[in-house]
């Protein structure tokens, strides 16, 4: 499980995370909602060790991401998909996907490539396996990004606003894949603005506001009329989101 305890993080004088406690159990899909600047993305970046914690701790299967020795193991167990895809521009889709399995998991090239092509097939990109990122649309790039993460066989998938840079049609492509993954029982931490979608795939919804975790409820309860929805800050946020 992913366990965050008392996580604090500030950039200069701005406090971004102000004492976050969060547990994500295996098999759960946890969506993190909140307005921009609420600290959602920073929380993900703390989980994968891209940001150092000021205080508190985050462990992934008991490996502490703040300890350099543990971080490598924690990163083997998790994989991240980024908002701006962050594909390696000089490598084809297949090369993007196989680099870490070959280098980190010490898979053979043939084995890694076969797995990569299977993954690409499963997201409908079998024919584009040897294309470079620049030759792919945004939605296709993000599907490659998801395959790259999945190729590491992660126990936890960290998704950082992965549809924010996509237009609605491409967003649908990507979300369909996530729905499939959720059905297969992949554990996911999902930072998003797609509230309706979060409602359909999440087991739990977490709401961040000004660096604090103000709500942590099962999805049903969150969206119930007398649940999290009833809180003014959240209803305000949701109505604003729905309008957009």
């Amino acid at each position: 499980m992913i366990r965050a305890r008392g996580v604090r993080k500030s950039f200069g004088s701005a406090i971004v995370l102000d004492g976050i406690d969060l547990d994500v159990e295996s098999g759960e899909v946890v969506s993190i909602l909140g307005s921009s600047g609420s600290g959602k993305s920073t929380l993900i970046r703390c989980m994968n060790g891209l940001e150092k914690l000021d205080a508190g701790s985050i462990t992934i299967d008991d490996f502490d991401v703040s300890r350099p020795k543990d971080l490598a193991e924690a990163r083997k167990r998790s994989a991240t998909v980024f908002q701006l895809f962050n594909l390696y521009p000089h490598m084809t889709a297949v090369q993007n996907i196989t680099l870490a399995p070959i280098q980190v998991l010490k898979r053979s090239r043939a084995e890694a490539e076969a797995a990569a092509r299977t993954l690409l097939d499963s997201v409908g990109l079998g024919a584009r396996a040897d294309a470079y990122p620049a030759q792919l649309s945004g939605g296709q790039r993000q599907r490659v990004g998801i395959c790259r993460a999945l190729a590491m066989n992660p126990r936890y998938l960290l998704l950082d606003e992965i549809t924010s840079a996509l237009d609605p049609e491409m967003t649908a492509e990507v979300l369909n894949i996530l729905a499939q993954l959720a059905k297969n029982g992949t554990t996911m931490v999902f930072v998003t603005h797609e509230i309706e979608f979060a409602r359909t795939i999440s087991s739990r919804i977490v709401f961040l506001d000004k660096g604090q975790l103000v709500v942590d409820l099962p999805t049903e309860e969150f969206f119930a009329a007398d649940g999290g929805m009833a809180r003014p800050r959240i209803s305000q946020f949701l109505s604003k989101m729905r309008k957009d």
Binding site: N48, R75, F82, Y88, M152
Partner: peptide, 23 residues
């Protein structure tokens, strides 16, 4: 180089020398 690309390599567990050589 876009820092996001380096971050993607880091979180996938690649070591610094490999990131330098391959990315």
């Amino acid at each position: 180089i876009d820092t996001g690309i380096i971050e993607a390599a880091e979180v996938s567990g690649l070591s610094k020398p490999v990131i330098f050589r391959k990315i």
